[in-house]
Design a protein around this nucleic acid. Sequence first.
RNA 1: GGUGAGGUGGCAGAGAGGCUGAAUGCGGCGGGUUGCUAACUCGUUAUACAACCUUGUGUUGUAUCGAGGGUUCGAAUCCCUCUCUCACCGCCA
Length: 418
Amino acid sequence: MLDIKWIIKNPKEADEAFKKRGLKPLSDKLIKMSKSRSQSFVQLESLLEQRNKFSKEIPSIKDKDKKEKLIEKVKSLKKEILKLQEGKSSTNSDLDNFIMELPNFLDNSVPDGKSDNDNIEIKKNGNIKNFNFKIKDHVDIGESLDVIDFKSASKVSGARFAYLKNNLARLERALASFMIDSNILSGNFKEIYTPLLVNEDTLKGTGQLPKFDSDVFKTRENLWLIPTSEVTLVNLIRDKIIEEDDLPLRFTSYSPCFRSEAGAAGKDTRGLKRQHQFSKVEIVSITKPEDSNDEHLLLLKTAEKILQELDLPYRVCELCSAEVGFSAKKTFDIEVWIPSINDYMEISSISNCGDFQSRRMNARYKNNEKKEYPHTLNGSALAIGRTLIAILENFQNKDGTVDIPEALKKYMNGLERL
RNA sequence: GGUGAGGUGGCAGAGAGGCUGAAUGCGGCGGGUUGCUAACUCGUUAUACAACCUUGUGUUGUAUCGAGGGUUCGAAUCCCUCUCUCACCGCCA
């Protein structure tokens, strides 16, 4: 959530920031809304004060008529209060609703841009293999090895689901263990197993709601399937006051993720790339504001290390202004090399959300005696479904088999290839 | 899913329409006593928001006793809904 006080104090800078996000200047509107809110608030307070004062006097008045009169007076006060409260709660929620749908301000360092073409590649790593045979994509590899079954999945669940079978199912499990272990080593991330169903407030806290409700699956019981365990990991600090010495908090979690991807119909329909359900190992950090830039790099390094150990070629991009997500102020994407498309594909997104989420969830930390909003950061380390694609394709052999990356063999009981 | 009991400050625990932002105890903080510790003792000890100026470790106000509604001149206290915790029963990996 944006800091309305800061906007009131710095309307020009705020409008610049809105512009960078591709929005109209909104400071005027926000300031007006906030002013009318605080005006009615002051008015209401003074009415409440009167009511309380008179009410307190009533029991000590002996004269019956006087008493009656005073009671009548308070009654009419009450009517006024009720009226005002109605107005207030509507302007109040106007501002709240409006501001809850505004994205985070971008970091100054974020490059301007209009599409993913304007993302800036900042690093490349690993060797892209030259295959001396006709390569297959992961769908063909998976189906010919009888380890992926889309047909059955579409019958059982519908489009955008898949069965993984045999050693590919095992590989998915191996990757989860491997990634978690690697993360714990990289930064002493604490492993967490989280709930997969959450309530509305939780999703508001991290920013999926209220704006992106169509991207998230909702159950009859008003619980929502998490689209990422960022949601549950960051919400661990909701309504809490963290001791300064306990920062940074670092969490890692393996979980299924569910995305309805309402806006993505017809996109990437082939294969495992864009599924309604996929697994992901997530890393999350909660830091002091002054540490979050360094922490952002640590998260990046943590995710990169996994690709390095898996021996997968990748590059790191800094997202341009058009591509940074709603809650983030700065994001690095890691993209892994995919031979069948002869290009890189996003496999991890690592974001610094500043105090945007901690404001939304009212999470603070003690800075000496002051309470301030910590920064929250999250990243995939890594998306497992897409890691499977990368392994199937980058480690494929001419005979249709797929080698198991060295780092995973011990998690596969020594298995050499699929 | 059913039944019952509950949710009060950092914690424990009173309060059962106005004197209650809330007794008491513990803990915390500051002081006293003491060779040190302990014990004892005195004082102090919530948060958020707002208004005002004398811009201060300021004054005043409002809200907060799980959440949201309601009754009332007045609600921690009465009523309704929801939620969470605990116990027992049922079901269950």
